[in-house]
Structures are given as structure tokens and as C-alpha cells.
Design a protein around this nucleic acid. Sequence first.
DNA 1: CAGATAAAAGTAAACGTTTTCTGTATTTAA
DNA 2: TTAAATACAGAAAACGTTTACTTTTATCTG
Lengths: 342, 342
Amino acid sequence: MKTLKDVALYAGVSVATVSRVISGNYPVKETTRKRVLEAIGTLDYHPNGVARSLKNAKTYTLGVLVPDIANPYFVQLVRAVEASVEKLGYHLLVASSDEKASKESELIRVFLEKRLDGMIIAPVSVTPATDWPQLIVNALPIVLVDRILEGIMIDSVREESRQSSKELVTHLLGYGHRAIGIVNGRTSTTALERESGYREALQEAGIIPPEDFMVRGDYDHKTGYLAGKRFLSHKEQAPTAVFCTNNLIALGFLQAVHELGYRVPEDISIVSFGDPFEATFQSPKMTIVVQNPAEVGRYAAFMLLEKLDGKPGKNVEVILPTVIRLGDSVRAPREPAQMYSN
Amino acid sequence: MKTLKDVALYAGVSVATVSRVISGNYPVKETTRKRVLEAIGTLDYHPNGVARSLKNAKTYTLGVLVPDIANPYFVQLVRAVEASVEKLGYHLLVASSDEKASKESELIRVFLEKRLDGMIIAPVSVTPATDWPQLIVNALPIVLVDRILEGIMIDSVREESRQSSKELVTHLLGYGHRAIGIVNGRTSTTALERESGYREALQEAGIIPPEDFMVRGDYDHKTGYLAGKRFLSHKEQAPTAVFCTNNLIALGFLQAVHELGYRVPEDISIVSFGDPFEATFQSPKMTIVVQNPAEVGRYAAFMLLEKLDGKPGKNVEVILPTVIRLGDSVRAPREPAQMYSN
DNA sequence: CAGATAAAAGTAAACGTTTTCTGTATTTAA
DNA sequence: TTAAATACAGAAAACGTTTACTTTTATCTG
């Protein structure tokens, strides 16, 4: 690949002049500018961004670290971030932590070494790994999305989760359900919040759910599928309604229900978090807390860009409101509610 | 951020020694190694990857350029690429061209300037933009995915498309359909191949489809939706079956059908390209050509890594086979087939 | 047309690494 | 105990930019 020096030689000027033509920040005589531009064209010169980044201490690249890049929720989020930052010339290094703290640490290290200008992270766990405090010290611009960390104040954007979970479960209670299960993630704040909303709703109804109604697994298809199989294989002791805390879990659960020959909502009612469009042609149409990952992404991008711009930044914690969209995945339990209250 | 110099100063050695400790490629006395490692730890030193890349002419970053990063097809593809290259220490810069040649050019330029080690691209158009030839000359390792370019030989991986399109349409013909529409993309090779398969099947049946049965738009939801509205708003002249050439188009078309109060396959039969899992709970279950983007991604990654390894490379053109999965989105047309043959 | 001033272009240092080339301890052999 | 060999460690150049500083060239004024 050609360098400034090659161009300079060809155009018969110094490298400084070529650099100035390219940057456009300095006066260059029109005739020489022409000559340089021509040289650049014929030599097919492309500036070396690496050298430039070294000199300028700026890479124009942002790191995005999500648990699963294939989860539609994060796909939407990432796309919104990309769309928000592209006009300012930033590009994205996207990576998946697979919900593993070790991979998260490793990738943060990579981001650091690559000298990315900032990062957007959906942390794996509530309790920050050892690397996190360093990060803060290093003052690298960070915005957390979807989840937060306990004990460390970092700018974050997420969607309301506890209250809406409570409402979902209350909705089920309103239909007469008493045996209500939950299929949840494990380590993230969202998982805790959603479980907390679930518990609150039940508590206010005087219900204490049995331990085996509460599944803690991963935010993935498999967890939902296995939970569905487990719940429904002993139908008599199964919950009459289930709260799936995430879109993938809901999908997996649904598949299990179908495979076992049961139907929603005739045999079991389901509510979940999800994307209204994704579910458009699903049968049945699910009653969901409508999530808006794109909005989360836009906010996160905005906040990160502000920081990059040198704005002071006062550790904002943005919580976006959510709404519930009713579908037809809920109806009253067929049998009289078994008594799990005490 | 700390530098080698800081560490060297702190440990009382030269920068060269610190560098050698880090790389591990040179002999360093155990006691000094310890001292250096300690310095690195207490100073929280992270090597500057930018400087390293400049020196080594290697960024360990690959560019991935797809038309739409939110399309599940490309999401799967990208994820497979990521999974394939991560163990070798490569990371991904992902960007969307939005099916715009201008954006594609721009992003290729960015990739070039960032000195990425290689790129994987799903080109927007069959006819290469002016930048493409340069790319080849620059000998930057490239692998095309999903689509190819006319007139330039570049390694590529894609799925068989023409023959399977033909089979899909033949399947429709077998059910007695004669008025068969197609909703397609515009510029890519896949669009051409799918249309070509469609035409062949019809031709062999002695049918020449009217121009307005052939919609050419984008590979997106909207194109499918609009086509659906258009076809079905004049039901009497509408096709009795439609071939949607892509998952998003199919989804959009389906939505239009639903909104207009029609049903599949009672009122109209549909076949398409798609992902068998995505469609699991769709009603109806679509008859599709099963695509396997992950496999495409794995192949592309493998081929790119080979090139990066300095393997000669002989311009391979990989075409992965596809299979058809029958669903229940097709049945015989209700009214006697109108005659479009001649 | 000389001298002052403004404009344009050149020189060289710096960014933070890696690595070749040297130099100095330390070990080994005689 | 000394010469040769080996093992470590340092100095400095190089990667390709940007930019402060300096020098050259062009322009202006009287």
C-alpha cells in the first residue's frame, strides 16, 4: 500500500504538504493541491488510519458488547447505535459475551487494547468483574445498556422492568390464575427485576410460589424449551400460567407446549417480554411487555457521543417506560385454581 | 493511559525488555520478568494495539459488510463468522450497506483506511462499483457471501438459488397454479437467479407471466407488504400463488394478506426463501427453500483465514446446496386457473 | 525596486510499539 | 585464571501519520 511519502515523491512536494491537502486544515496553493490530489488519485493512495489513530489518539471506533448478537433484541439495539453514530464517522466493533463473565472481561481488555473511543456494554452480571473498577479509573467512556452494575455508577440506559413484570403477573391473577410459573435468566439485573416484579404481584395476592415454579436459566430458547417440557410433563402439578421473562425463552416455551400437544391459551396461559413485530404472525398472539431496544440504542449512542465530545457527564441512569400489549395468550384456567396460597 | 516507557521506568529496565516480556518471544531473566510483570500489574498497563498494529501491519480485525445487519439471515451469517474467527484472535467490524452502492463504496474505503486484515462482503449490485477493481489490485483478502460480482473473480460463498427457485415454482404449478407472481429484490445476483428460476419453471409449463406479476423492490418487509396490497386489492386479476424471494418479503406479504382479511393458503398460496426456525410458529407454516446462513458464514470465515495465512488461493466459488421444506402455505387454486399461457 | 509582510512549503519531532544491532555480564571450557 | 561462548539487556531505527517550528517564496507598500 502507498504512503504519504510515495504521494509526496510523486507530486514533488513534502509529506507535510500532502498531509495538509488531505486534512484541508491548512492553506495550500491551488496548483500544488491539484498536483497532490492527482498523485493521490493515480497512486490509489488510502491514508493509513492506524498511523493516524496513533498520532491523534482517536480510532473513531466504538465497542459494543452484548450477551448475544443473534438475539433480535440486541440486534435492534446495535443497529440503532450504528445508525446513530455513523453520520459522525464512528464505526462499531461488535462482540458477544455469551453471558459469560470471562468472555466479557476478555473482550473489555480487547476493547481497551484496541484503544476504542468508547463502549456500550450489556453487562453479564450484577456484580462487576474485577476488571470493571479499572475501567472506571481509566475513564474510558462507557454506557451500559439493558442492565446495570451494582455498586458502580456508570451511565446506563434500560427499560422499566420490575413494575411491568408485576403488571403482567397481576394480569394473570386477574384471570383467576393462582399457579403461576416464571422462566427467567440468571445473573443480570433484568432477571432480578423481573423476578422481583413477579414476587411482588404474587405476594400482594397472598401467594407464595413453590420453588419449582421458578426456573432460572439463560435468556435463550433452550431454557424456555426445557422449562416448558418440565412444567407440562406433569400437567396436574403444572402452573396454569407462565411468565417468560424474555422473547427467546417465550419462543422455546411455546415450542415445548406445541410439541407436547398442548395449546395456548387453552391449556396454559403465557405472558412475556418481547417485540410486537416479531410476534405478528405467531399463533397465538402473545400478551407482552413491549420492548423498544432501538430506543435504548439511540439513547446510549447519544450519551456516549456526548461523553466523547468532552461533556462532563453526571452519571445519568435512564429508564425508559414500557407498555403492555394484550394478545390472546391468556385466559382463565380451566380447572379451579389449586391453592398455593397459605 | 500508561505506555511501555512508564512500565520500563517503574521496573527499572528498558522498553525493549518490557516489550520482550510481553511478547514472550525472547529470553528474559526470571527475576526481571517478575519485576516487569509486577510493574505492569500495579500500573494497570494495557498495550497500545494501535501502535502495535502500525508496527506489525496487522490489525486482527476483519470487516463484514452486509446489506442489512438486522436481517436475520445476515445476523446468523455474521455470528457464524464471529464464532469462527474469535479463537484466532480476530474481531469484527460490522456495517450495513443498506443495499446502497454509495454506502458500500464508502464503507470499503473505511475498511481500507482502517487497514483491516480482510473483509467479507455481500455486494449490493451485480455490476461492481468503480472501487472494486482497485480492491482487487490492492490484493486485500476478500470473500464475497450470498452474492457475487459479474466480471471479477473473487472468492465467494453462496447458496444454490436458481434451481431451488425453479423447484418452488414448479411445486406451485403442480398444484394447478397458473397465475403465479414473484416479489423480488432488485440488483443482487440472488435476485437475478431467483427470477431466472421462476421464469424457467413457468416457461417449461408454457406460461409467460404478465409484467405486473413481477415485482422488483428491495429485500425488505415493506416491499412484500406493498406487493401484497397491490396484488390483492384487485383480487380478480391477482395471482393465485406468489413466490417471495426472501424471508422479509414473505413476512411483509403475509401481513398484507392478513390485513386485507384473506387467508393463506385458502385465498392465496405462498412459497419463499427462509429460515425454518424463524417460521416455526408462523401460521401458516411456510413452504420454503431452507437457507443456511451460518454455513455460508463458516465457509467464508474459513476461506478468509486461509488467505490471511498466506495460502495462495485460487478463486474458489463455493455454492452450498439447499433443500425445500414443505409447509402448509400451498394448496390448489380455488377458481379454475385463468389462462395466461398462450 | 527595496524592504516588510504574508503565504506557502519544508524539516523534524512525536505518537507507542517491535526488533535489529550492540554491548555487557555471566557462564563454560581449557 | 583467562579466552571464548552464551545469555541478557539496552540503544535506536522504523512503522505512517500530524503539526509546531523554520525556511523559502510570493505579495504588497511606498
